[in-house]
């Protein structure tokens, strides 16, 4: 398993994909930092009226939540694009033949890919999460969201979990379909999940059951958005807060996922990985 994991990491590093992404992400953080810095100056002026405290709360969580939402979006896309071809592309190009003619099991190969990609994605998403958090904490002033270290750790863990789940699902698709098909299906799933997340939040506020149910179905189908919403709850301590939508905007969460849903998310990732192994074991190369 480890030679495959090392190969996966080396491949992305040697191809300089990660370096380019790292530099682009750094640029994104700089822009986000500049935006936050100037915005907090304006918020300081707004803070004098009677609605000032509410407006400040709204702006701070909105800014932080927005930063995290788009960081999660970029991380998810990176997880999709780096994983969907990690097995199918090898099969299509026949590069896999000399590897699988070695005394290495198919389960080890999939696990090696999973571990390698997960290490990369965890590193990258942790970097982005901490970058956005650092901007908010050190440049935010009026926009600073008060969070404890344990909240950061909990939210950070959930943030990186999104990409791990995506990697597991992408590997499963990659063992069954071509790179293009896997990529399209996964992006559609991701977009459905995002859309379901927004609709569920609106449903929570308007108390429209059908909208809530739609969100639940999309969460069951692909629970990445639910992980993000859980992360915002742990970060903003806003679970089931009736005014959370008002304070967090559309990037926050109005209703907290149940414990059952959290267990489901964990099982979802494990089952996706087991399916990937099973599917790869059964197929012809």
């Amino acid at each position: 398993m480890w030679p495959i994991a090392r190969l996966t990491i080396k491949e992305i590093i040697y191809k300089r994909v990660f370096l380019v992404i790292f530099l682009m992400s750094l640029a994104l953080l700089i822009f986000y930092g500049i935006g936050t810095y100037y915005a907090q100056g304006q918020v300081a002026n707004m803070n004098r009226g009677p609605m000032g405290a509410l407006a400040q709360g709204f702006m701070s969580t909105q800014f932080y939540g927005m930063g995290l939402y788009f960081a999660a979006f970029i991380t998810s896309l990176l997880a999709i694009f780096s994983s969907v071809g990690s097995i199918s592309k090898e099969i299509e190009s026949r590069q896999i033949d000399p590897m699988m003619a070695r005394p290495i099991s198919r389960a080890s190969f999939v696990m090696g890919r999973f571990v390698g990609l997960s290490i990369l994605m965890v590193s990258y998403s942790a970097f982005l999460f901490l970058g956005i958090t650092a901007v908010n904490q050190f440049l935010g002033n009026q926009l600073k969201v008060v969070v404890s270290m344990s909240q950061i750790l909990q939210a950070g863990s959930l943030f990186v979990l999104q990409s791990i789940i995506i990697v597991a699902v992408a590997l499963f698709f990659s063992t069954r379909w071509s790179t293009l098909n896997s990529g399209i299906v996964l992006i559609m799933l991701y977009v459905t999940s995002m859309l379901g997340g927004f609709i569920e939040q609106l449903g929570g506020i308007t108390e429209i059951k059908q909208m809530l149910n739609f969100g639940i179905v999309t969460s069951l189908l692909f629970p990445v958005d639910t992980i993000f919403r859980t992360m915002t709850i742990s970060l903003f301590e806003s679970a089931d807060d009736p005014i959370s939508m008002a304070t967090q905007g559309i990037f926050g969460s109005a209703s907290a996922p149940s414990t059952g849903m959290l267990i489901y998310i964990g099982l979802y990732g494990v089952v996706a990985l087991l399916f990937a192994i099973r599917s790869f074991q059964k197929r012809d190369l």
């Binding site: 480890w2 030679p3 090392r6 190969l7 491949e11 040697y14 191809k15 190009s93 026949r94 590069q95 033949d97 000399p98 590897m99 003619a101 070695r102 005394p103 290495i104």
Partner: peptide
């Protein structure tokens, strides 16, 4: 067992030495 496939293709970002090292690790 050693195997040279017909339509052989190896990761072209690797050097020859790295390729052999990778396969030695697999063995």
């Amino acid at each position: 067992v050693g195997y040279l496939p017909e339509l052989f293709r190896y990761p072209d970002w690797m050097t020859g030495r790295q390729l052999l090292q990778f396969h030695s690790e697999m063995c």
